[in-house]
Protein backbone atom coordinates (compact mmCIF):
# COMPACT_ATOMS: atom_id res chain seq x y z
CA UNK A 1 0.00 0.00 0.00
CA UNK A 2 2.57 2.57 1.11
CA UNK A 3 4.82 2.09 -1.94
CA UNK A 4 1.98 2.94 -4.24
CA UNK A 5 0.81 5.97 -2.29
CA UNK A 6 0.98 9.10 -4.38
CA UNK A 7 0.99 12.72 -3.37
CA UNK A 8 0.17 15.90 -5.22
CA UNK A 9 3.48 17.76 -5.07
CA UNK A 10 3.76 21.48 -5.83
CA UNK A 11 7.57 21.38 -5.91
CA UNK A 12 10.68 20.12 -4.16
CA UNK A 13 13.99 21.76 -3.28
CA UNK A 14 17.17 19.85 -2.48
CA UNK A 15 18.68 22.34 -0.02
CA UNK A 16 16.85 24.61 2.40
CA UNK A 17 18.20 26.30 5.51
CA UNK A 18 14.90 27.87 6.54
CA UNK A 19 12.65 24.82 7.01
CA UNK A 20 13.86 23.34 10.29
CA UNK A 21 17.20 22.38 11.83
CA UNK A 22 20.20 22.06 9.51
CA UNK A 23 20.08 21.64 5.76
CA UNK A 24 16.86 19.98 4.59
CA UNK A 25 15.21 18.56 1.51
CA UNK A 26 11.75 20.10 1.31
CA UNK A 27 8.61 18.71 -0.30
CA UNK A 28 5.92 21.32 -0.89
CA UNK A 29 2.58 19.53 -1.16
CA UNK A 30 -0.23 20.99 -3.19
CA UNK A 31 -3.48 22.02 -1.52
CA UNK A 32 -4.32 23.97 1.63
CA UNK A 33 -7.39 24.13 3.86
CA UNK A 34 -6.66 27.77 4.71
CA UNK A 35 -7.00 30.64 2.30
CA UNK A 36 -4.64 33.13 3.93
CA UNK A 37 -4.70 36.72 2.75
CA UNK A 38 -0.92 36.80 3.35
CA UNK A 39 -0.11 33.57 1.50
CA UNK A 40 3.23 33.81 -0.38
CA UNK A 41 2.45 30.85 -2.61
CA UNK A 42 -1.26 31.14 -3.46
CA UNK A 43 -0.80 28.77 -6.41
CA UNK A 44 -0.32 25.96 -3.88
CA UNK A 45 -3.74 26.51 -2.26
CA UNK A 46 -6.05 24.60 -4.68
CA UNK A 47 -6.24 20.96 -3.68
CA UNK A 48 -6.33 19.67 -7.22
CA UNK A 49 -4.13 19.73 -10.29
CA UNK A 50 -3.99 23.17 -11.92
CA UNK A 51 -2.76 24.01 -15.39
CA UNK A 52 0.11 26.36 -16.13
CA UNK A 53 3.61 27.17 -14.97
CA UNK A 54 3.00 25.91 -11.46
CA UNK A 55 1.23 22.66 -12.35
CA UNK A 56 1.72 20.23 -9.46
CA UNK A 57 3.01 16.72 -10.05
CA UNK A 58 1.49 13.47 -8.86
CA UNK A 59 4.48 11.68 -7.35
CA UNK A 60 5.04 8.35 -5.68
CA UNK A 61 7.07 7.77 -2.54
CA UNK A 62 9.82 5.92 -4.48
CA UNK A 63 10.09 8.85 -6.90
CA UNK A 64 10.66 11.22 -4.00
CA UNK A 65 13.10 8.82 -2.34
CA UNK A 66 15.21 8.83 -5.51
CA UNK A 67 15.54 12.60 -5.26
CA UNK A 68 16.18 12.53 -1.52
CA UNK A 69 18.89 9.86 -1.82
CA UNK A 70 20.94 12.10 -4.15
CA UNK A 71 20.91 14.93 -1.62
CA UNK A 72 21.06 12.77 1.53
CA UNK A 73 24.81 13.19 2.29
CA UNK A 74 24.18 16.94 2.61
CA UNK A 75 21.10 16.80 4.83
CA UNK A 76 20.02 16.83 8.45
CA UNK A 77 16.57 15.79 7.33
CA UNK A 78 13.51 16.32 5.23
CA UNK A 79 10.58 18.65 5.76
CA UNK A 80 7.14 18.33 4.26
CA UNK A 81 5.53 21.72 3.78
CA UNK A 82 2.87 23.10 1.52
CA UNK A 83 0.26 23.92 0.70
CA UNK A 84 -0.72 22.15 3.87
CA UNK A 85 1.17 18.95 4.57
CA UNK A 86 -1.48 17.39 6.81
CA UNK A 87 -4.08 17.55 4.03
CA UNK A 88 -2.16 14.58 2.58
CA UNK A 89 -1.27 12.97 5.90
CA UNK A 90 -1.44 9.45 4.50
CA UNK A 91 1.18 10.27 1.91
CA UNK A 92 3.32 12.05 4.50
CA UNK A 93 3.11 8.97 6.71
CA UNK A 94 4.12 6.72 3.82
CA UNK A 95 7.05 8.99 2.91
CA UNK A 96 8.36 9.25 6.48
CA UNK A 97 7.96 5.50 6.99
CA UNK A 98 9.89 4.80 3.81
CA UNK A 99 12.67 7.19 4.87
CA UNK A 100 12.96 5.52 8.28
CA UNK A 101 13.00 2.08 6.65
CA UNK A 102 15.77 2.95 4.17
CA UNK A 103 19.20 2.28 5.64
CA UNK A 104 20.80 5.07 3.61
CA UNK A 105 18.20 7.61 4.77
CA UNK A 106 17.39 6.50 8.31
CA UNK A 107 19.66 9.20 9.80
CA UNK A 108 17.43 11.93 8.36
CA UNK A 109 14.93 13.60 10.67
CA UNK A 110 11.39 14.00 9.33
CA UNK A 111 9.65 17.31 10.01
CA UNK A 112 6.24 18.70 9.16
CA UNK A 113 5.67 22.39 8.49
CA UNK A 114 1.96 22.94 9.08
CA UNK A 115 -0.79 25.44 9.71
CA UNK A 116 -1.95 23.14 12.53
CA UNK A 117 -5.51 22.87 11.22
CA UNK A 118 -6.05 19.14 11.56
CA UNK A 119 -7.56 16.81 14.11
CA UNK A 120 -5.72 14.98 16.91
CA UNK A 121 -5.83 11.69 15.01
CA UNK A 122 -3.59 13.16 12.32
CA UNK A 123 -0.74 13.89 14.75
CA UNK A 124 -1.34 10.65 16.63
CA UNK A 125 -0.99 8.79 13.35
CA UNK A 126 2.15 10.63 12.24
CA UNK A 127 3.89 10.72 15.62
CA UNK A 128 5.61 7.30 15.35
CA UNK A 129 7.37 8.33 12.13
CA UNK A 130 7.92 12.08 12.56
CA UNK A 131 10.60 13.92 14.51
CA UNK A 132 9.21 17.41 14.80
CA UNK A 133 6.68 19.95 13.65
CA UNK A 134 6.75 23.66 12.95
CA UNK A 135 3.34 25.22 13.43
CA UNK A 136 2.14 28.60 12.25
CA UNK A 137 -0.06 30.45 14.71
CA UNK A 138 -1.61 33.13 12.53
CA UNK A 139 -3.51 34.67 15.45
CA UNK A 140 -4.62 33.74 18.96
CA UNK A 141 -7.77 35.82 18.53
CA UNK A 142 -10.37 33.60 16.87
CA UNK A 143 -12.07 36.42 15.02
CA UNK A 144 -8.88 37.90 13.56
CA UNK A 145 -7.72 34.38 12.71
CA UNK A 146 -10.94 33.87 10.76
CA UNK A 147 -10.32 37.11 8.86
CA UNK A 148 -6.72 36.22 8.10
CA UNK A 149 -7.23 32.61 7.06
CA UNK A 150 -10.90 32.04 6.42
CA UNK A 151 -10.94 29.38 9.15
CA UNK A 152 -11.22 29.14 12.96
CA UNK A 153 -8.12 28.51 15.11
CA UNK A 154 -9.33 25.98 17.66
CA UNK A 155 -7.65 23.08 15.86
CA UNK A 156 -4.42 25.08 15.55
CA UNK A 157 -4.30 25.73 19.30
CA UNK A 158 -5.11 22.10 20.05
CA UNK A 159 -2.37 20.95 17.66
CA UNK A 160 0.22 23.10 19.43
CA UNK A 161 -0.74 21.64 22.82
CA UNK A 162 -0.88 18.08 21.48
CA UNK A 163 2.47 18.29 19.67
CA UNK A 164 4.14 19.71 22.77
CA UNK A 165 2.71 16.85 24.84
CA UNK A 166 4.08 14.41 22.28
CA UNK A 167 7.51 16.07 22.48
CA UNK A 168 7.28 16.92 18.78
CA UNK A 169 6.79 20.69 18.80
CA UNK A 170 10.00 22.12 17.26
CA UNK A 171 8.85 25.68 16.72
CA UNK A 172 5.83 27.98 16.67
CA UNK A 173 5.84 30.72 14.07
CA UNK A 174 4.03 34.01 14.43
CA UNK A 175 3.45 35.84 11.16
CA UNK A 176 3.08 39.52 12.00
CA UNK A 177 0.87 41.77 9.85
CA UNK A 178 1.23 45.40 10.85
CA UNK A 179 -2.01 46.73 12.33
CA UNK A 180 -3.71 43.32 12.18
CA UNK A 181 -2.20 41.00 14.76
CA UNK A 182 0.47 43.03 16.57
CA UNK A 183 -1.66 44.88 19.09
CA UNK A 184 -0.08 45.05 22.54
CA UNK A 185 -2.87 43.27 24.37
CA UNK A 186 -3.11 40.54 21.74
CA UNK A 187 0.64 39.90 21.73
CA UNK A 188 0.68 39.74 25.52
CA UNK A 189 -2.17 37.23 25.55
CA UNK A 190 -0.37 35.22 22.89
CA UNK A 191 2.81 35.22 24.98
CA UNK A 192 0.89 34.04 28.05
CA UNK A 193 -0.86 31.32 26.09
CA UNK A 194 2.38 30.04 24.54
CA UNK A 195 4.18 30.21 27.91
CA UNK A 196 1.45 28.07 29.45
CA UNK A 197 2.19 25.41 26.83
CA UNK A 198 5.98 25.66 27.11
CA UNK A 199 7.88 28.63 28.58
CA UNK A 200 11.07 27.49 26.80
CA UNK A 201 9.36 27.20 23.42
CA UNK A 202 11.21 28.10 20.25
CA UNK A 203 9.25 31.01 18.74
CA UNK A 204 9.97 32.52 15.35
CA UNK A 205 8.61 36.02 14.77
CA UNK A 206 8.23 36.57 11.06
CA UNK A 207 7.46 39.90 9.51
CA UNK A 208 4.92 39.73 6.69
CA UNK A 209 6.42 40.55 3.27
CA UNK A 210 4.52 41.43 0.13
CA UNK A 211 6.53 39.09 -2.10
CA UNK A 212 4.22 36.68 -3.97
CA UNK A 213 1.09 37.78 -2.13
CA UNK A 214 -2.16 38.30 -4.10
CA UNK A 215 -3.11 41.95 -4.44
CA UNK A 216 -5.98 43.16 -2.30
CA UNK A 217 -7.56 46.39 -1.16
CA UNK A 218 -6.66 47.74 1.26
CA UNK A 219 -3.15 46.35 0.87
CA UNK A 220 -1.60 44.44 3.76
CA UNK A 221 1.18 46.30 5.54
CA UNK A 222 4.70 45.00 6.19
CA UNK A 223 5.78 45.59 9.81
CA UNK A 224 8.95 47.63 10.20
CA UNK A 225 11.95 46.41 12.21
CA UNK A 226 10.83 48.41 15.24
CA UNK A 227 7.36 46.83 15.24
CA UNK A 228 8.81 43.33 14.93
CA UNK A 229 11.26 43.95 17.73
CA UNK A 230 8.41 45.24 19.90
CA UNK A 231 6.63 41.90 19.47
CA UNK A 232 9.81 40.01 20.34
CA UNK A 233 10.39 42.18 23.42
CA UNK A 234 6.86 41.55 24.70
CA UNK A 235 7.27 37.81 24.17
CA UNK A 236 10.62 37.76 25.92
CA UNK A 237 9.18 39.65 28.88
CA UNK A 238 6.58 36.92 29.35
CA UNK A 239 8.80 33.83 29.34
CA UNK A 240 12.20 32.40 28.53
CA UNK A 241 11.27 31.68 24.92
CA UNK A 242 13.99 30.94 22.39
CA UNK A 243 13.07 33.78 20.05
CA UNK A 244 14.20 34.37 16.51
CA UNK A 245 13.06 37.44 14.55
CA UNK A 246 13.20 37.41 10.79
Amino acid sequence: MKDTATGLVASTIAFSNVDGPGNRFVVFLQGCNFDCVACHNPQTIPGHAVEGDHAPLRMTVPELLTQIRRAAPFLSGITVSGGEATQQAGFVHALFTAVKDDLSLAHLTCFVDSNGACGPDTWAGLSPVMDGAMIDLKCLDAQIHQQMTGQPNDEVLASIRQLHALGLLYEVRLLILAGVNNGTELVQHTAEWLAAVDPAMRVKVIGFRQHGVRPRTPALVEPNAHELQAVATMLQAAAGFDICVI
Binding site: S16, N23, C32, H40, S81, G82, N115, D136, L175, I206
Partner: peptide
Protein backbone atom coordinates in the same frame (compact mmCIF):
# COMPACT_ATOMS: atom_id res chain seq x y z
CA UNK B 1 23.78 30.04 -3.93
CA UNK B 2 20.47 29.40 -2.37
CA UNK B 3 20.52 27.00 0.47
CA UNK B 4 17.51 28.93 1.59
CA UNK B 5 14.12 29.53 0.18
CA UNK B 6 12.91 32.94 1.27
CA UNK B 7 9.78 33.09 -0.77
CA UNK B 8 8.61 29.55 -0.08
CA UNK B 9 8.61 29.45 3.65
CA UNK B 10 6.93 30.68 5.63
CA UNK B 11 3.75 30.37 3.70
Amino acid sequence: KRIGCHERAPR
